[in-house]
């Protein structure tokens, strides 16, 4: 609430405003006419009309050049995307199109033996993603709730800062940290679950930031309405605020998963590849699509390279599916950005 301007004064002032507005067009019109009546300016182009009469050729050229550059930059940015998708599809489609790809693991294949399936890697990627989400989502959502609903002062600023830092932690450093923690400190083995923990580190900040954005969009009036009904704060958050932001939060989680599923570096350190279907996160070896690509790309034979492309195509398809579903859910969202 700001201090009031005197009520009486308002109508008069408004009336004056109207008068000025009415006066303006005629004034400027006369000015324009006068200007046009003057001998040709530096542009020397008598057909230049109205206020743009002083726009010189240089300025117009710069404007056109800028327009061309902007369009050019966009086209330039789209080229690699199209190119990558084309490479992946044209090189990987044959294998991905075979039914065996989706129903079989890679047992029996070798650098020289083409074909094989990717089921083991698909299962591994999805399983790791699911467990990652299971751990990262509660931590991330609660952190966002803290930042939006409770956080004040220095701790909140520190948490927010650290979320940003965590966003910037390279995936290989996350992998190294879990290695230092899980293997050298706790004496554990390199197992898929340890790799999952490093993916959790990478996913938390994505969930925090997207959830935070969504919670901020929930109008304060809804919180107040709930408080005014005598509903405790925690119930207000759990039953009013979070449901209102729900679809937005789900979108953020799906986009976060899409990012995490393509991560390779921590898996190289912590989750060695296997050709066989193996779904135990606590056993030694487990395949994922990124490590399958990595394993095959180091071979020089065409059979392996084909598998690397096909696995890339599969990975991109899964990531795009997550992205797409996330965006579709965002459209149904109750709170709009």
């Amino acid at each position: 609430m700001s201090a009031s301007t005197p009520k009486q004064g308002r109508p008069d002032a408004a009336a004056e405003d109207v008068r000025t507005l009415e006066a303006t067009p005629s004034c400027s019109a006369t000015r324009v006419v006068e200007r046009d009546a003057e001998p040709a300016g530096p542009a020397g182009n008598p057909r230049n009309e109205g206020a743009s009469g002083h726009k010189s050729g240089g300025r117009a050229a710069a404007d056109v050049a800028a327009r061309i550059i902007m369009w050019g930059a966009f086209v330039l940015a789209v080229i690699p995307l199209v190119w990558i998708l084309w490479s992946v599809v044209s090189n990987g489609l044959e294998l991905v199109g075979s039914p065996r790809w989706w129903s079989d693991d890679a047992a029996g294949t070798s650098a020289r033996r083409p074909g094989g399936g990717a089921l083991h890697a698909i299962v591994g990627t999805l399983e790791m993603a699911a467990v990652t989400a299971l751990i990262a989502v509660p931590i991330g959502v609660l952190t966002a709730v803290y930042l939006v609903e409770y956080g004040r002062g220095r701790l909140a600023r520190l948490v927010s800062f650290m979320v940003d830092i965590l966003t910037g932690v390279p995936s290989i450093v996350a992998g190294l940290f879990i290695y230092a923690f899980w293997v050298t400190t706790l004496g554990g083995q390199r197992i898929p679950f340890a790799a999952t923990l490093s993916l959790v580190l990478l996913m938390i900040p994505v969930v925090v930031r997207s959830t935070e954005e969504m919670l901020k969009l929930v109008p304060n009036e809804l919180r107040e309405a709930s408080f005014a009904l005598g509903v405790p704060k925690w119930k207000t958050i759990v039953q009013v605020v979070l449901p209102t932001a729900f679809s937005g939060i789900v979108t953020g989680i799906l986009l976060g998963l899409a990012r995490v599923m393509g991560e390779t570096a921590p898996l190289i350190i912590l989750a060695p590849y296997t050709k066989y279907l193996q779904g135990d996160l606590f056993a030694n070896l487990m395949a994922t699509l990124p490590t399958m690509i990595n394993d095959n790309r180091t071979e020089v034979t065409q059979a392996a390279i084909d598998r690397a492309w096909a696995a890339s195509l599969t990975l991109i398809l899964i990531i795009l599916a997550f992205n797409l579903v996330g965006r579709l859910i965002a459209r149904t969202s109750k709170v709009k950005a």
Partner: peptide
């Protein structure tokens, strides 16, 4: 001031 039914 503004009607604020719960949207969900």
């Amino acid at each position: 001031q503004r009607p604020n039914p719960f949207p969900t």
